[in-house]
Design a protein around this nucleic acid. Structure first.
Lengths: 168, 168
DNA sequence: AACTGTTGCTTCGAATCCGAAGCACCTGAC
DNA sequence: GTCAGGTGCTTCGGATTCGAAGCAACAGTT
């Protein structure tokens, strides 16, 4: 754990550099990936994320809207919009949950799985070329080991869906 | 360097995990930061990036539009829009460059520097709480050491401003 | 100088995004 | 039960975003 009592001090150089480097890398990578996704499968980055999460992350291929939104770091309203697009494209189906009448379950279709499969090889290639390639052999694993706990820590904090409602 | 001949193979688990973790962390971090910036100084994340780059990264406090856009990973048209907002808010000034009549030099104003200074302490705090805190002492530095070369590698590739123009 | 291609920025139109507000359902206290 | 508050999603309005096209200035060639 980092030292505790640095409340309002400016960031140390390492922290600053890590922060800016992280954001830059993510931004550049997102861009490269977005381009490839659009060309290869007419998908936006969010759409890819959503499909990938359903196809790879969920055993059943379905998930609640809220969980999807939180999992993908996205606003609820934005998700409604994207889910609508994906459904119109036939890559996904929405249905009310059996147990809770409010919630909507999103399920990937076979067509959705095909789309992901179609896009994946080129996707992997971009990731490798832009992101993985310049790292030495063990570095990728080390990076993952560094970042995964950070992600877990961030996810543990009240997620966007838990944002307190405004008083009326 | 990673092995060369893995052209269309799927990504190995480490690569996948590093990729997703990176994007998630960046997304979550951006969100937290955006919230703080809006409340503390009425700035969007891009606006903060722009001001920070001018205030901290440039000795003169000025930079060309294109260099700003590339530095901040942003579309040129988006930059035009944001530069307009920042100028209207008095945080920045635009002026044609003396040597090249086409290019526009953006300079941060004193008011802009004040704004950055005002926002920075809370900003640092969010970064620490969300991002730096869960890492052990040397980890931050290690992370920076891992990511900086990747950023440089990505920047070396033809940046967005060099995207080939469409034939007419 | 005239021509051609390039580069820097802005404008344009359409797509996407977000937060706030709204609606419906669910849950617990009474 | 019923009432109050919480939760899940969508709708709404407005802001932001991007790529393509447009415009002006530059640079090199002839």
């Amino acid at each position: 754990m980092a030292r505790m009592a640095d409340a309002h001090e400016p960031l140390d150089p390492d922290g600053l550099q890590a922060y800016f480097a992280l954001m830059d890398v993510a931004g550049l990578l997102k861009h490269g990936v977005e381009e490839q996704l659009r060309e290869a499968g007419d998908l936006s980055y969010v759409q890819f994320q959503l499909l990938a999460r359903l196809a790879l992350g969920s055993p059943t291929g379905s998930e609640r809207m809220t969980d999807l939104a939180d999992g993908v770091v996205y606003s609820r309203s934005g998700l409604t919009y994207q889910a609508g697009l994906l459904e119109k494209a036939g890559l996904v189906v929405r249905a009310p949950s059996p147990d809770d009448e409010r919630s909507v379950t999103v399920s990937i279709t076979d067509e959705g799985r095909e789309r992901i499969a179609r896009v994946m090889p080129g996707h992997a290639e971009v990731i490798r070329r832009l992101f993985l390639h310049p790292m030495a052999d063990g570095d990728v694993r080390r990076l993952a080991e560094l970042l995964v706990p950070v992600r877990d820590h961030m996810r543990a904090a009240p997620p966007r869906s838990a944002a307190p409602r405004r008083k009326r």
